[in-house]
Design a protein around this nucleic acid. Structure first.
Lengths: 329, 329
DNA sequence: TGTATTTGTGGAATCGATTACACATTTCCT
DNA sequence: AGGAAATGTGTAATCGATTCCACAAATACA
């Protein structure tokens, strides 16, 4: 590998001068500059970012921690993040936790050891030890999807979105509405959306039967199972189902269709997330578009702000959502 | 930031000894080791990977260049790559070209400047200048999806897959089969798959009319337009359509359904890529599963081999595909 | 003309780790 | 007992850049 030293020798100047040419800083005569650029051109010299970082303490790399790498949500988020970061000359260092909480702390440390200029965390379960670890890092930090006090956050109004969804079903005339959620340790998706459901029902004066409320995980199979459970144990069969993700809704729809019932006549469905699938399945699924790309862009912009301000300050940006009314209700 | 020097001072040893403890190398007395570990524990010291890399010439980072960041293909590929790399303690540095060829060379240089230990390139259009740039890099390198001589490649048998697909349609009794492809500058998807189509037809002794062969880009809208074109300008309307991606097929199906025709009775469809969508749309789409995750795993494994062998050697791994016969034919 | 300022350049320290080498002490083996 | 081998530790060079500082030459200003 060619180094700045060799370039300096070949151009008959000092390393200092080469560095000045490279960074367009300080005084350099046209003559010297020309010689240096010529040698760089001829040799194809590429300066080591690594050595540079060691000295300057800036890497132009942002760590992005994701709970899962190949979901539509994640990839849209990353797309938005990359869009903004690329403009600023930053690159993304990926860290995939595969939903394992212990990995989150591990990666936090790893990213710190790599001196990333900032971190964006797309969190699911937020626990105390994770939060403490983040505070200790002292690295510009932005979370997406879950609120953590004292940090910069990009969040969604999960509560209101779920409530809107259920209210739409109510407006459509449904009175017995079931709910398929996820574990409440996921505060945004599990806890807040569930509350949105309960409050919408309560405000409309509608009763909720325990058997209508099921809990699954993030895949369609568990939506299928939850639906089955609802049908099997309910005395009073619901006429509509609100699920916290499109996948859960789609799994549930499959069960209903396999029973020979029709959607939305026998059972109406609503999901959340606006997956591509939701548009193309039959019937198309009513859902909520959280615009993950916007969230990504916002998170990146917020992070760059924190970096330029050289501080970690609480700030909350709420991303707008859109309710997409489709054939499933 | 805490440095190794401070740890050494606090533990009353030299930096050398601290380094030895950190890397489990050389001779260190139990006593010294204990003291060092205690100080590290107390202070939460995290060694700088950056400084380490500068000295050791290894970063444990792999650059991954993608044509587009948020497609199902890319995200599955990255998932497979990450699965293997994470085991080896490597991380992924993302580079998204957004289908702009000039970005490919730019990122190649950027990744080199960051001293990544290896690069995986998911290429679409491969041109001479790109190839030359790659040869010059002298960094362990693996391409996915397109063959480049002299390098390690993970490829698909695009030709045979397309041929199989068309032959399946022929076996189903179709004689007039249309084809929706993409530009041939994408050798794998554009050129090879098209050849597979032509050869399957020729070998079956079936004629191909020019109006049946259309070219689109990678989205469903252009599949829609291509189908429209086929219907409008064909004297002899085909009874089946083979498309080089699921998206193109899905767009084409939409046009046919909007015309009030039914699938597969009036027109049969086959796509390629096994997107999630293909499973859930109605009717479900016959397609080819190229197992991108396998490809990712294979690419990562191949790259790690090249790294450990310290050489860049031509090697070709062909990923198996599966033909998924579904309701659309 | 003499002093102040601007311009141009390079020597050498620095960033935070690893590692070759030297040296001292202990243990082993015949 | 006495030399060889193993164990333990530290000094200093090194990786490849940036940057402080000193200094010389050219230019401006009074």
């Amino acid at each position: 590998m060619l180094t700045i030293k060799e370039i300096a020798e070949r151009a008959n100047v000092s390393r200092t001068t080469v560095s000045r040419v490279l960074n367009n800083s300080g005084y350099v005569s046209e003559e010297a500059k020309r010689r240096v650029l010529k040698v760089i051109e001829e040799t194809g010299y590429i300066p080591s970012e690594n050595a540079k970082s060691l000295r300057t303490k800036k890497t132009k790399v942002i760590g992005v921690i994701l709970p899962k790498i190949s979901t539509e949500t994640s990839s849209r988020l990353v797309k938005g993040i990359d869009e903004i970061l690329a403009k600023g000359g930053y690159q993304i260092l990926l860290a995939n936790t595969n939903l394992k909480p212990e990995k989150e702390i591990e990666y936090l440390k790893l990213l710190k050891s790599r001196h990333v200029d900032g971190i964006i965390l797309s969190a699911t379960n937020v626990n105390r030890s994770l939060i403490e670890e983040i505070y200790q890092l002292k690295i510009p930090f932005v979370t997406v999807g879950q609120y953590i006090s004292g940090l910069a956050n990009v969040v969604f109004d999960d509560y209101q979105a779920a409530k809107d969804m259920v209210q739409l079903l109510i407006k459509k005339g449904h009175k017995r509405i079931a709910f398929i959620g996820v574990d409440e340790s996921d505060r945004a998706v599990g806890y807040l959306r569930k509350n949105g459901y309960y409050d919408a029902m309560k405000e409309a004066g509608l009763p909720v039967e325990d058997s209508w409320v099921q809990k699954g995980v993030f895949n369609s199979e568990s939506g299928y199972e939850s639906m089955k459970e609802i049908i099997e144990i309910s005395d009073n069969r619901p006429t509509a189902v609100a699920a916290v993700t499109d996948r859960l809704a789609i799994g549930a729809m499959q069960f209903i269709q396999q029973m020979g019932l029709s959607i939305p006549e026998d059972m109406a469905f609503a999901g959340m997330g606006a997956s591509e699938l939701s548009r193309y399945i039959t019937p198309s699924l009513t859902t909520i578009d959280f615009s993950m790309e916007d969230a990504g862009r916002e998170a990146a912009a917020l992070l760059l702000e924190q970096i330029s301000r050289e501080m970690n300050q609480e700030e909350i940006r709420t991303i707008n959502y859109r309710l997409l009314e489709r054939a499933s209700i």
